[in-house]
Simulated scan of single mutants.
Amino acid sequence: MKTVLMILMLVAGSAAAQSKYEAAVLKGKDLLKAADDQEAYMGCANYFERIAQKESKEWLPLYYHSLSLTLWGTRETNPGTKEKVLNDALALVQNAKKIEKNSELVALEGFVQMMRLTVDPATRGQTLSPTIYALFGEAIALDPENPRAVLLMGQMEFGTAQFFGSGFEKACGYIQRAYDIFEQTPDELTTLPTWGKGMAEASLAHCNQ
């Protein structure tokens, strides 16, 4: 009887600890969703860094830490500062991939690299573009229904088309597909990534101009 009680207590304790972790990640997701400036994004990065330090075997805190820094980088205009923050974001997502390799992490790595390309497109385009396309292609292959992977591929195609002055049909095909996946995905409370629908809507608006 004592053995059974001890097992039940251990199970209950484990569930409580997991619930505490999940609650912390969900809170961080809400903070990230509400962030609209660099200070807020850096606050999110610091928040997820603290979770990652406590939950060293979990990939999600590293993922969101990296995403927070990447989104911060989208607002930065100083090339040197932007490069440093994005390099930190890249290291984080690559560390997360050592814990678990999945479509979300591969897509995020491509996102970070795409932002690194924007630091100096003329110089980096030839060397980084193949890497970025390969990462987004791998992310889609791992999960064809990952809307973030499809959307980011579309945004990369859109940027390439702009740079070379070519048509946007291929890019907008990816973006429309990503938007459709978002529309078909039911809202649910989850610690897994769910961001991107607003980006898809904004990108689709450019396609429809």
Results as ranks from 00 to 15, higher is better:
residue 73 G to A: 02
residue 96 A to N: 07
residue 90 L to G: 07
residue 39 E to H: 00
residue 129 S to Q: 13
residue 59 W to Q: 06
residue 78 N to R: 04
residue 71 L to V: 05
residue 81 T to K: 02
residue 105 L to E: 02
residue 112 V to K: 01
residue 38 Q to E: 15
residue 122 A to M: 15
residue 99 I to M: 08
residue 96 A to Q: 08
residue 106 V to R: 00
residue 78 N to P: 00
residue 126 Q to H: 06
residue 131 T to G: 14
residue 91 A to C: 02
residue 105 L to K: 01
residue 132 I to D: 04
residue 141 A to K: 00
residue 123 T to E: 08
residue 95 N to V: 06
residue 51 I to V: 14
residue 48 F to D: 11
residue 139 A to F: 10
residue 64 Y to P: 03
residue 56 S to P: 00
residue 73 G to M: 01
residue 132 I to G: 00
residue 104 E to W: 14
residue 110 G to C: 09
residue 125 G to E: 11
residue 81 T to Q: 03
residue 84 K to R: 07
residue 139 A to G: 10
residue 82 K to F: 00
residue 93 V to A: 03
residue 60 L to M: 09
residue 145 E to T: 05
residue 43 G to E: 06
residue 56 S to L: 11
residue 130 P to H: 13
residue 34 A to G: 12
residue 122 A to D: 13
residue 73 G to R: 04
residue 34 A to M: 09
residue 42 M to I: 06
residue 120 D to I: 14
residue 107 A to L: 10
residue 130 P to F: 07
residue 143 D to L: 02
residue 59 W to N: 06
residue 152 L to V: 07
residue 97 K to T: 00
residue 139 A to P: 11
residue 116 R to L: 15
residue 112 V to P: 01
residue 125 G to D: 09
residue 136 F to H: 05
residue 68 S to V: 04
residue 34 A to K: 12
residue 109 E to Q: 10
residue 118 T to W: 11
residue 148 R to H: 08
residue 40 A to E: 12
residue 136 F to Q: 04
residue 123 T to S: 14
residue 134 A to G: 14
residue 142 L to A: 10
residue 69 L to T: 07
residue 127 T to P: 09
residue 74 T to F: 05
